[in-house]
């Protein structure tokens, strides 16, 4: 079945089986292996991608359901080799150890980051409640998010706006 999706600003068209999960489409059809697959039934959040501006689990969605829509994966975060503000903050605050869950965390956080809002620690924990990390104990992740959101809010207040992944190809 023909499926056309814009991923990280680039249009892809593939003929896939209806049963193909979006996570497998991203990894196996497009070769974008930054999206990690953990539990594969909607529990761990590792495979989170941004669908039309909202974080969703790519393992809990069929590729054919994404026809005509826009997706951003972790590969879409950096800009000309420059790390995204979220990535810089995770590096600075030791927000990862093995890194398996990190793409899922980053993509869950991207829409919040783009809003340019500051969040309290409890609010951050609610945002990331659907993502499991087995290394950090979450404290450094919360600190990373705090740093990234504070930076994004500073930029928004100074009128510059935070980093945004480019996503300008037309789906239709």
């Amino acid at each position: 079945m023909k499926t056309r999706v814009v991923v990280n600003g680039e249009m892809y068209e593939r003929d896939v089986e209806p049963r193909m999960l979006m996570s497998d489409f991203i990894r196996h059809e497009l070769g974008l292996t930054g999206t990690n697959v953990g539990c594969e039934h909607g529990v761990c959040g590792s495979c989170t991608v941004v669908l039309d501006g909202e974080p969703v689990r790519s393992c809990t969605m069929l590729a054919v359901q994404a026809d005509g829509r826009r997706i951003t994966t972790v590969e879409g975060l950096s800009n000309d080799g420059e790390m995204h503000g979220l990535q810089r903050a995770f590096t600075a605050c030791h927000g990862l150890q093995c890194g398996f869950c990190t793409p899922g965390f980053l993509m869950t956080l991207l829409p919040v980051y783009n809003e340019g809002k500051r969040l309290e620690s409890e609010e951050i924990r609610e945002v990331i409640s659907g993502n499991l990390c087995r290394c950090t104990g979450y404290q450094q992740i919360v600190e990373s998010v705090q740093m990234a959101l504070d930076e994004a809010a500073d930029l928004a207040e100074s009128g510059e706006g935070p980093d945004r992944p480019s996503d300008d190809a037309d789906v239709s």
Partner: peptide, 9 residues
């Protein structure tokens, strides 16, 4: 209901 990613779908 579940987590934000699931509530979005």
């Amino acid at each position: 209901v579940a987590h934000p990613q699931i509530r979005n779908r």
